[in-house]
């Protein structure tokens, strides 16, 4: 999927590209992206090491990693990560289930769409953080309100993605199913599901991204553990290294979970141009 040509200039013919890249460039190309952040980190490390800055507000990478190591050694890191992952996981699961079910209903039945969609769209227009006080009143300050907030964040992109994907399934291909007399269920399983899957995976990834965003918001509002708590704690006690440690871990976890979705979907999406190209290069 990573390529050095702008998308519009890429050839649609995978074979053409398969021959060109050597072993070296296959690994070198992703490395290129690491160059800038690595250079900045090393540069800053050097600046602090030489004493040109005390690095108190912007700690150098070594200090950030030392903080992570400290947290890991005391076992606190695992506790915070587990708390956050648990919240994201649950919220994501609820959001995905609700978004998928309602999105599928809205996409499949036009009557349901007319009834349901305007309301969902109106709710979507409300900035999700505006729900926070209400959720806290309704569900309490503890886990439930946090998970509800995350689920609400995940819900909308998944709902929209599923509905849009079903609505844009090619009628011509549905017709192929009809000529082979597929019944309602077989039509869904053999035509609609595979046709919808690529867009669905994208909406899951967008949803997950929002899930991570909202877990931070939820944990900043009030939590005794979790990576968001580390952020807040770092701010209140003036420990920028701890804040940056939490940010680094957020980045790693976000990327990792996103990659997991991509990985899980890969076997089903091999037929797509983009994935085919990644496989062959």
């Amino acid at each position: 999927m990573i390529s050095d040509a702008p998308v519009l200039q890429q050839s649609s013919e995978p074979a053409e590209r398969a021959a060109a890249p050597t072993r070296l460039s296959r690994y070198a190309r992703p490395m290129l992206g690491l160059l800038l952040p690595l250079a900045l980190a090393l540069g800053w490390e050097l600046v602090v090491w030489r004493g040109w800055s005390n690095g108190r507000l912007v700690p150098p990478p070594s200090r950030v990693f030392a903080t992570i190591a400290d947290l890991a050694r005391s076992g606190e890191l695992v506790r915070h990560i587990a708390a956050t992952l648990w919240r994201v996981g649950l919220g994501f699961a609820f959001g995905v289930v609700a978004g998928t079910v309602l999105g599928a209903i809205s996409g499949y039945w036009s009557l349901a769409r007319r009834l349901l969609d305007p309301t969902v769209q109106a709710l979507r227009a409300i900035p999700s953080l505006a729900w926070v006080p209400l959720f806290i009143l309704w569900l309490g300050i503890f886990e439930t309100s946090k998970i509800a907030l995350i689920a609400a964040g995940v819900f909308f992109p998944v709902y929209l993605g599923v509905m849009g994907a079903i609505l844009s399934v090619d009628r011509k291909i549905v017709e192929v199913g009809r000529t082979f007399r597929l019944s309602g269920f077989a039509m869904i399983r053999r035509i609609l599901l595979p046709a919808v899957l690529p867009a669905y995976v994208v909406s899951l990834r967008v949803g997950l991204g929002l899930g991570w965003m909202f877990v931070v918001a939820a944990e900043l509002i009030g939590a005794s553990e979790g990576l968001g708590y580390l952020l807040l704690d770092g701010q209140q006690l003036g420990k920028p290294a701890q804040i940056m440690a939490a940010i680094v871990i957020f980045a790693i976890l976000g990327k990792l979970t996103d990659w997991l979705i991509e990985l899980a979907a890969m076997p089903f999406l091999r037929w797509q141009d983009a994935f085919g190209r990644a496989k062959e290069t």
Binding site: I173, T179, F180, A195, L197, W271
Partner: peptide, 20 residues
Amino acid sequence: ASPHAKIGIIFQEPRLLPWL
């Protein structure tokens, strides 16, 4: 009145299922 097992159709476009 509805698609029949004994009647097949080929369209102007191949309409192959891209995931198969």
